[in-house]
């Protein structure tokens, strides 16, 4: 029950980045990376990516604005083609 494979470990590791891994899963992951170097290294990098993303305070433009903008570009391109 405690032994998992690399694929499962990777999945738990991804969930853990979003605080969606259960306690048992976290324990399974910790055990797995004790003996699996590849997953250990991937886990470390994955956690680092999470840290970087939160440090960078990324923003996204909202979806409505993007859609509006796409339409405008599309309309403009069509007019250009007709000329």
């Amino acid at each position: 029950m405690l032994i998992i494979n690399c694929k499962e470990a990777a999945n738990i590791c991804d969930k853990a980045q979003y605080n969606e891994a259960k306690s048992l899963e976290k324990l399974q992951l910790r055990l797995h990376i004790l003996y699996c170097g590849i997953c250990r290294s991937h886990s470390r990098k994955n956690a680092e990516l999470t840290k970087l993303c939160s440090k960078a305070k990324l923003e996204v433009m909202n979806k409505e604005s993007k859609d509006r903008l796409k339409k405008e570009i599309d309309t403009y391109s069509k007019i250009e083609q007709q000329q």
């Binding site: 996204v60 433009m61 993007k66 903008l69 570009i73 403009y76 391109s77």
Partner: peptide, 11 residues
Amino acid sequence: DPAQWVDRYAD
């Protein structure tokens, strides 16, 4: 490729 601009560069 203006059709891809929003997806690729807006953010």
